[in-house]
């Protein structure tokens, strides 16, 4: 069962990476390692932050 849950979580992460979607779990983990002791963004803050980065930076993220 635990293995199933782990596999499901991995699949979620992969799908998010493939489509360039925000991945809060990955952010939390990175934050814990890189900035221990600081308060991370909430899930909503992080979501809004990612959307801004991806769609309001003028970067080309897709093709014809």
């Amino acid at each position: 069962m635990n293995q199933l849950i782990a596999a499901w979580k991995r699949l979620n992460t992969h799908v998010k990476t493939i489509f360039g979607m925000p991945n809060y779990e990955r952010y939390l983990e990175h934050h814990r390692q890189a900035h221990p002791g600081e308060t991370p963004m909430s899930e909503r803050e992080y979501y809004m932050y990612c959307l801004k980065e991806r769609y309001e930076s003028g970067k080309v993220t897709r093709c014809c």
Binding site: I18, G20, R26, Y27, E29, H30, H31, A34, R62, C63
Partner: peptide, 26 residues
């Protein structure tokens, strides 16, 4: 490795990411 844009990614997953970005109506 900033946990955001620069993240080492499994090559199969990155293949999917790249393909989803280049594939379109063209």
């Amino acid at each position: 490795n900033d946990g955001k844009d620069f993240v080492p990614t499994n090559r199969w997953v990155l293949f999917g990411h790249h393909f989803a970005a280049i594939a379109g109506a063209g």
